[in-house]
Nucleic acid binder design. Structure first.
Lengths: 339, 339
DNA sequence: GATGCTCTTTAAACCGGTTTAAAGGAGACC
DNA sequence: GGTCTCCTTTAAACCGGTTTAAAGAGCATC
């Protein structure tokens, strides 16, 4: 708890001016090599680390990136995406002396979160997740002058690079898998239609079925929550001609749907096949193990962080980055339809 | 993107000095009321908000709190605690113009995370979660001079206030519930023994059984992960005299254990009763619904943030805060033992 | 020896606030 | 009118870095 050394201490010790220390630290040309060595040695002896706060003030950077997520416990609480995504982000930031600032806002008022991050100048850039159709946040960020990277590609015009992970091949693979097993009555429980990735999945579902010459039994709107999954499942099972297979837009709804089916007296997969999306931790361990689609949110985070940093560093025309697509994981919850 | 106004702009507009503006903003006495009004009006007209960076530098505060969590996806990924806890923390911070800085570190090197937060002076205080027995982080934080609040009470000496949520009444209630149902062969799947809260739960388990004149069939070490829950369950079911009820230290292990029991051909709760801990979202929706114990992590976060802020503000002898204890939630996964 | 040039180094301003010491002004009192 | 207070306001230093303009040193050239 003794006061930490400042740049002035280092300068004094090395017998040079503050400015020279700053130059040496930042590898600026124009200093004699011997002087640089002397300064670095002095800094080392004192254990000096430049103050983030002072640097922040003088270079007008926060050395931090921001993530705004909704407070809705349903979206937040057992979503396997964010924790892994955040871990990926951090794996990059921690090597750069950057920090991750989290804003949790009430559902529907994400805009406030970005506004606050920008007004407080807390971050140099933000991750834009859970894109909505015609997402108003993009324009907001442009107005705020806050650099960003979008997770997946928005459907409107966007000045920000996108890091994309194509959900569709995974969804297609699920449907094809079920068709191959002999299913013809397949239903889908989608995520909220406001989300780009939710409609991407349901569109891929419908199109793949069509390509196989089939029509969906139904496409139910879910909300990504377990409760929503239950309800959608009940509605599907109450149909006059219920489906023999249900494809859910995420694992939480799928696992809840599995429970609902079992509670209704059905055996999975004998009476009903069930597939999820995410390959969350529990997917492997419920009974029967859940056939699902696996993405790599950690890598998503890593890549998004690196991409955002390029924008923050002033690089223009940072290209979009495409991650390996999501892939099918077959477990026991899918099988041939009942005879 | 026009440059934001500075304190000098406000001063000029109000026809006063920078210092007066600063006084007015911070409600310092010594300014005439008319002057204060004039300054505040000018600030308002310009839409001036003091720069966090400049304030940070001059008052040596970060206006941010920190949370270090382990990168281990198992601990992170489907833990229902942290997301809700963080939401609670944020609900306090956002009203105070503070930010939450997240550090994700490799499992086992939490110390690095605190060190980094302290060295970079990124935060004014930190939350100390997942306490271990004789947790070395406490001494580390003392050395770093970083204020903290502990989530639950450490077993050693600690200069930091603790926000506590007693797990034991919930665990006791689970055991009593099972005993009342007629179970005599009850086992426990514990969390890692290094954690204070894990051993608190297993101790409460053993003691409550003893009070009922029973001995545990076994206490298996789990690791809070689904995979660990599966393995522990298999070991228990392979015993010559397997238990008729299993109490798990968290829901993830319990849900995985439920899957394992079903995979082994058992019917829950007819053949085996299962209880979890956390009341995670899926607990209600798996089949059968999971009897579990509910705490309130959101409120935990709120309270911890408020308490930590008192320490950060220099208050001494901030008292511990005790939250309402965890309570039993009975669902279908527990019933009388087989005849 | 004066001039010019390159290579190093530094003093000082700056980022945008807070804080301290002192100045300024108004009224009270003698 | 002069002096003393008290109340209000300000100038300037400070936080700890970065950056710019200019000074200084060393050497070659004429």
């Amino acid at each position: 708890m003794t006061k930490r050394p400042t740049i002035a201490d280092v300068a004094r010790r090395a017998g040079v001016s503050k400015g020279s220390v700053s130059f040496a630290l930042n590898g600026r040309p124009g200093l004699a090599q011997t002087t640089v060595d002397k300064i670095l040695a002095a800094a080392d002896e004192l254990g000096w680390r430049p103050s983030n706060r002072a640097r922040s003030l003088s270079v007008s950077k926060a050395f931090a990136l921001g993530l705004v997520i909704t407070r809705d416990p349903a979206v937040l609480s057992s979503d396997p995406f964010f924790p892994a995504f955040i871990a990926g982000v951090e794996s990059v930031l921690s090597t750069q002396g950057q920090a991750l600032v989290l804003q949790v806002v009430a559902d529907g008022s994400e805009a406030d979160g970005y506004q606050r991050l920008a007004q407080d100048a807390r971050v140099d850039g933000v991750f834009l997740s859970d894109l909505r159709h015609d997402d108003p946040r993009i324009e907001l960020l442009v107005e705020l002058g806050l650099p960003a990277v979008t997770l997946n590609r928005p459907d409107g015009q966007s000045p920000f690079p996108a890091v994309t992970l194509d959900d569709r091949p995974g969804t297609r693979a699920v449907v094809e898998h079920l068709v191959e097993l002999g299913h013809t009555r397949i239903a889908h429980v989608a995520g909220p239609t406001a989300f780009v990735h939710a409609t991407a999945r349901s569109t891929a579902f419908v199109e793949t079925l069509a390509a196989a010459g089939l029509e969906p039994v139904a496409v139910e709107d879910g909300d990504f929550t377990a409760a929503g999954g239950i309800e959608a499942t009940r509605r599907l099972l109450a149909l006059p001609q219920p489906p023999t297979a249900i494809v859910y837009a995420n694992d939480r709804m799928a696992i809840a749907g599995l429970g609902a089916a079992q509670a209704a007296g059905l055996t999975v997969p004998d009476d009903l096949s069930i597939a999820g999306f995410d390959d969350s931790e529990l997917a492997e361990y419920v009974h029967p193990g859940l056939t699902t689609v696996r993405a790599d949110p950690f890598r998503f985070g890593e890549t998004a962080a690196r991409t955002l940093n390029r924008v923050v560093d002033g690089e223009t025309d940072v290209p979009d980055v495409e991650l390996p697509p999501a892939e099918l994981v077959v477990r026991r919850s899918t099988a041939a339809p009942p005879a």
